[in-house]
Design a protein around this nucleic acid. Structure first.
Lengths: 350, 350
DNA sequence: CTGAAAGCGCTTACAG
DNA sequence: CTGAAAGCGCTTACAG
């Protein structure tokens, strides 16, 4: 088993290796007939250029990397789904590295990977997307990056996002439209920038509808099922409890559902619950969750495209302004939110 | 920003580049004092050897790849969790590539990646782990691989697995031990080797307990929620229905739970349901699922270790026999399986 | 224990 | 439109 090299192709096609290189890199100034000859030889020999040699000699490695810390499983899968397909089309490959966001050597570790691999670009998801030490080291190494949902640290580098604020605004509006006035809210993990943005959207919707904010109905959560359970317990065992709860991710919403059942509440009649993310489990619980679907796969595809096309490269930014792509979310209406009036019509409350 | 090379280190340490290379690769025959000098220079310059140069000049690329097709999100996350940590320790990097298992060009596509990147090893998860065309092309390229749960095609290459047969045997035994005699079974996707193995374990348990097999209580599923719903509908609307259903993954089990609720069955009293996988959702549904926890993270760590250490390399197999690691599963007992007697004691049936 | 030379398979910069 | 030469940053094979 000998590896086929550019020399073999050049010899078979009866041209120089430089011409083979031109054809493979789609450079101009090659006669059509010459191109055909080369392509035929490539095909016949099943030639695949060595990534190492290309990287060492040239300026590209054809390697992208996704650095992440403890994402939800579905989020990771969607990111890879979007990134992997774009990579394949362009002859790039996706490396993944899981890191501990609280590790003080995080940035150094990313710097090591970036220089060892000569990465052509980096994808950063929350909460690493808001880690300024990481952004610093990436910029020092001249490595393009795209940040997902870059809410805590703004105006730094290319990004992809959806409008979390508006999604939360509309979800709260949906509950209000159903007739809810007493709405509980469970915040996300404080390390994630989206957490605060979603809260802001919620508060705006309340204000726009003239509903006063009840601080005691806003609970801290951490995006985990257990934190949803804890918040729901405190919300639902209080003297006066909300008629609806907006949990800012599905895992927490499912915690609320569990507590609701445990307390013997008739869901959704006695308590409406809405989530955020549309994880697979959202349609498995009863009642099936009304939630926000994030365009994670499309965000990943867009990010990858920005990296490969060079849009994410600082020196190519139009007017020095980093590109930011905003994608559409979707509110998926299922069974977990209902009008509180319907409930009182169907049964006595208290 | 100039990149630091081995020459810079050699100059600062006042040795030849060959000596630097020796130190970095832990080769013998370097005086301790020399080693110290080199290490100090490496540290001072923050030198990181170029992966491309090492790969081009040497025989290793320090690159591993996980090829997969439509895994469950949690499965993918666990594989990456296990593989990523071992890779980092050893200075390797993990590439991921999502492919369509039914695409006829699948093997060719993997072959292309393998040769372009000079991959040092490959991780294959079901159903790709049983694709013989892929195994052929990997062997032709002399690329070591480790297969996950390689049940359909046996005795080909290194593998990691847990004892799916015994897990299914024990789970069925648990149901029988609870007093169930009428047990429905939902098979997995026919493309996954584990599907048949789990069925065999189930049938053995039935036979060992002297319970005759009811073919009409064995339904085809495809590992999806919807296929679980379909199978459950057919199982539960029949004239005579089982008192327990063993769905061979959690997604299908959650489909059964949903149908159970829809039919107004009191769960788990009127119907016990058990699953397989222990996905996050398993503890979110009500009743919380009794299920089998697979050691996916440990399997991935073991596979990665086999690849990096060389155990998975054909020429190094002891006595020509491929290494196979079997890891322990765990049956997680929650609330979804209960004795049918308790149910009849608590309420009249029919 | 250490080093000088050659070469891995490409792209770059230059020449024609 | 095409090619000869040099070089990317390492490891291999060999010499001492």
């Amino acid at each position: 088993l000998t590896t086929v090299t550019i020399d073999d192709v050049a010899e078979l096609a009866d041209v120089s290796i430089k011409t083979v290189s031109r054809v493979l890199n789609n450079e101009p100034n090659v006669r059509a007939a010459t191109r055909e000859k080369v392509l035929a030889a490539v095909k016949q020999l099943e030639y695949r250029p060595s990534q190492s040699a290309r990287s060492l000699a040239g300026s590209r490695s054809f390697l992208l990397c996704h650095f992440y810390d403890n994402p939800s499983p579905a989020y990771l899968l969607d990111v890879e789904l979007g990134a992997s397909s774009i990579c394949r089309e362009a002859g790039y490959h996706l490396i993944v590295e899981r890191l501990d966001g609280s590790d003080p050597t995080l940035a150094a570790s990313i710097g090591a990977t970036v220089t060892a691999l000569r990465l052509d670009g980096v994808i950063l998801t929350p909460p690493i997307s808001d880690n300024t030490a990481v952004l610093d080291i990436l910029e020092r190494n001249d490595t393009p990056y795209v940040r997902f949902a870059p809410y805590m640290v703004r105006n730094r580098g290319a990004s992809v996002a959806m409008d979390d604020r508006r999604a939360a605004y509309e979800m709260t509006g949906l509950l209000i439209g159903l007739g809810h006035r007493r709405i509980g809210f469970i915040k996300g993990h404080p390390d994630h920038g989206a957490s605060d943005v979603r809260l802001q959207g919620h508060l705006e919707a309340l204000r726009d509808q003239g509903i006063s904010v009840r601080e005691d109905w806003i609970k801290q959560g951490y995006f985990s099922f257990d934190s949803g359970v804890a918040a729901a317990e405190s919300l639902l065992t209080a003297a006066e409890r909300p008629s609806a709860i907006f949990a800012t991710n599905d895992d927490m919403a499912m915690g609320v559902v569990t507590v609701g059942h445990r307390l013997g509440l008739d869901l959704p009649d006695q308590l409406s619950i809405v989530g955020f993310d549309d994880t697979p489990g959202a349609s498995y619980v009863w009642p099936r969750l009304t939630t926000v679907r994030q365009p994670v796969t499309q965000m990943a595809a867009a990010a990858t495209q920005m990296l490969i096309s060079g849009e994410a490269t600082r020196s190519k930014w139009p007017a020095g302004k980093a590109p930011a792509r905003l994608l559409d979310f979707e509110i998926v209406v299922r069974d977990s939110a209902r009008s509180p009036d319907a409930a009182s019509a169907g049964r006595r409350r208290d």
